[in-house]
């Protein structure tokens, strides 16, 4: 008697006779184990495909010590003018892109909501929004750099598109969750379409919209610090240039500044959120 049958017998249920039934029982008992086994096999396979081995890692750690020693102390002085200018540029790109993104998301969010608009309208809007969201900003950045050349304009366009992708989606979801009863009441008073939106829809979603905007600004700020790596303006360009020249102490200074900027932003946005709640 095999182990499986013994376990089946213990359950006081009739021993399976049909082949299919046997297979089903097998999975019911060993399903989790099989999944785990497959998982481990996959991990080992993936590790070997990527050429990751303990030796590789330990070599890396020795190398890492050397690298760390070359990072410190950070050098803020040598390129300070570039750094200051580019940090500000990152911030400015984030501000403008967030505002443009929010302004565009408002109408797109209303147009994409299936409870307000016919599918002829919502379908293309939703496709555009999911396309804007599917690609990492860096990829959109590469395309815009090719289209409009190096510089902050490419970054600005990139993050505007990314913002539409993100806020647009959240806003559509928020609009689709509203109570249509309130909308119906405003319609019944003979209000124009604009007034229906203004009094029936917006009061129900406006509080959440501010949160989306804040969140998107945080995200845009993070991304605007890296877009320079592909030439789309901001501090990332200076960072990458220093990295390629092996000026690791400058790299370290810039990264510390980025971390500082982001922590500061998180603190501020936490405060602002509290004011609005």
């Amino acid at each position: 008697m095999d182990a499986l049958t013994r376990r089946v017998l213990k359950t006081q249920e009739p021993v399976p006779t049909g082949g299919m039934e046997k297979v089903r029982r097998f999975f019911r008992f060993y399903g989790v184990q099989i999944l785990l086994f497959l998982f481990v096999v996959y991990v080992l396979f993936a590790l070997s495909r990527l050429g990751i081995s303990p030796k590789r890692i330990s070599e890396g750690f020795t190398q890492g010590k050397v690298f760390l020693s070359r990072l410190f102390p950070p050098d803020f002085i040598t390129r300070w003018d570039d750094i200051r200018h580019d940090m500000l540029e990152s911030l400015e790109i984030a501000v403008v892109a967030s505002i443009i993104g929010i302004l565009l998301s408002l109408p797109l969010g209303l147009l994409g909501a299936r409870n307000l608009m016919p599918s002829v309208v919502t379908w293309p809007v939703r496709l555009f929004i999911s396309l804007a969201r599917a690609f990492n900003p860096i990829i959109i950045g590469i395309i815009f750099v090719k289209a409009v050349g190096f510089g902050p304009l490419a970054g600005l366009l990139t993050l505007s598109v990314a913002s539409v992708g993100f806020i647009g989606k959240l806003f559509i979801e928020a609009v689709e969750e509203i109570s249509m009863k309130q909308v119906e009441a405003v319609r019944a008073s003979g209000a124009s379409f604009l007034s229906v939106i203004r009094f029936g829809v917006l009061p129900q979603v406006s509080a959440r919209f501010i949160g989306f905007g804040m969140y998107q600004f945080d995200s845009n700020l993070r991304n605007s610090t890296t877009l320079g790596i592909v030439g789309a303006g901001g501090i990332g360009g200076t960072l990458f240039a220093a990295y390629q020249r092996f000026d690791y102490r400058i790299v370290c200074a810039i990264v510390l500044l980025i971390i500082g900027l982001i922590i500061l932003d998180e603190y501020v946005s936490e405060r602002v959120r509290r004011v609005f709640q």
């Binding site: 990751i52 890396g60 190398q63 690298f67 610090t225 890296t226 990458f240 971390i259």
Partner: peptide, 21 residues
């Protein structure tokens, strides 16, 4: 969370060399 993955990647490329590691 404050360091973008691309910047983390720069560090690790310097340490482990280019590649999936």
């Amino acid at each position: 969370r404050s360091v973008n993955s691309l910047i983390w990647a720069l560090f690790y490329v310097a340490v482990f060399g280019p590649g999936p590691v």
